[in-house]
Amino acid sequence: MPRPRVYKTKAVVLRHRKLGEADLILTLYSPELGKLDAVAKGARKPTSRLAGHLEALSHTNVMLAQGKSLDVVTQSQTIEAFRAFWEDLERMSRAVYVAELVDKSTPEQQPNRALYELLLQTLRYLAETAQIDVVVRWFEVQALTVLGYRPRLDRCVRCQADLTPVANYFSAVAGGVICHDCVGNGLIVRPLSLNALKILRLMQHSYVEQVLRVRIDGPLADEIEGHLREYLYTVLEREMKSTSFLQVLKREALAGT
């Protein structure tokens, strides 16, 4: 969609980068325009009228003007500030990961309204629910669908046979579940427990509210996280830098208990 010279859009602020003495480059995710970078002039000065309305991880209304290289934010008004992220490091770290995943999985200026809605809904749940890691897993499964990488979970990707209710295998390269008969021939697979398969299917087909009713923790949560990390890494070919911070927090939580 060609942008008019001056335009208005809603957007989630995925990240900030410093520019020059007092400016910021914002990476925005908009329903109409997809991902785009924009400059907020003077936003690092304490007196800036823009700054408070353009915080990272917030949902905001922005007015932009086409610039020479980057568009320039002329007005902004926060819609949802998600204060919980600024008061709870665990919530903030998950929200940062989700924002990074959207940033790294999308090209510039290609709208994907489903991804925008998914991102917003995920941030809302991350700000409120106690099971933030389950929300992140649900987001990952749903993001794979809206990005066009939906893993096949209903039957074997290779032989198309229905899956028997036993442990199977999961292959990121093959794009889904592999049955006992098809495993081998050098295909890289991970053992997939029946419970993990059930949860992944639930996450693929359900609203987050339904997923949050199921208890997902301990080794089962670790297994699902491992499958999704591998899968995302294979399809996106990008490492998420924020995962190392998530691991630091996890290690310290374990050490503290």
Partner: peptide, 8 residues
């Protein structure tokens, strides 16, 4: 700390 840049 800048989780998105990998600064821990």
């Amino acid at each position: 700390l800048s989780p998105m840049d990998g600064t821990g």
